[in-house]
């Protein structure tokens, strides 16, 4: 058990982040916290990709003489894009939340539901 933890700690970290993020996303009544949960969830995924690229003893993927073995550059590129996507999503979400707040004066999901369905 401990060995598994030791050799795969990155995956445990990923799982933990995913779990925390999803929990916040579902359970928190505060809209901002929901968005934070969404971010944590995404961060877990980003981390998962990054650790995929890892190779023991690998070099940065910049080709020079006698370089190899390299860390896989692909996941980094992907995640760079994914991060940008994530940032834009967060921004949009926050913009929406501000609009909701100015209109309804609350960020509480339950209260919002009451107002919303009236």
């Amino acid at each position: 058990m401990f060995e598994l933890l030791n050799s795969h700690y990155n995956y445990f970290a990923v799982m933990l982040l995913l779990g925390i993020g999803l929990y916040m996303l579902i359970e928190s009544r505060n809209l901002v916290k929901k968005v934070i949960g969404m971010n944590i969830f995404q961060t877990g995924i980003f981390l998962f990709f990054i650790t995929l690229a890892f190779r023991t003893g690998g070099n940065p993927p910049i080709i020079k003489e006698g370089g190899g073995p390299y860390v896989s550059p692909l996941p980094h590129v992907l995640i760079l894009t994914a991060i940008v996507v994530g940032v834009s999503l967060t921004a949009v979400a926050l913009a929406l939340i501000i609009r909701i707040y100015t209109e309804y004066g609350t960020l509480d999901e339950d209260k919002l539901k009451q107002l919303y369905y009236d």
Partner: peptide
């Protein structure tokens, strides 16, 4: 403003969906 509430709901659920997809891509990779 109810449109904003709907959009936020859409955003959160949609993002989770897309993130799950991304995670799946990671597994395939």
């Amino acid at each position: 403003a109810s449109a904003a509430v709907a959009a936020l709901k859409y955003l959160i659920i949609g993002t989770v969906g897309a993130s799950l997809y991304l995670l799946g891509v990671g597994y395939l990779l």
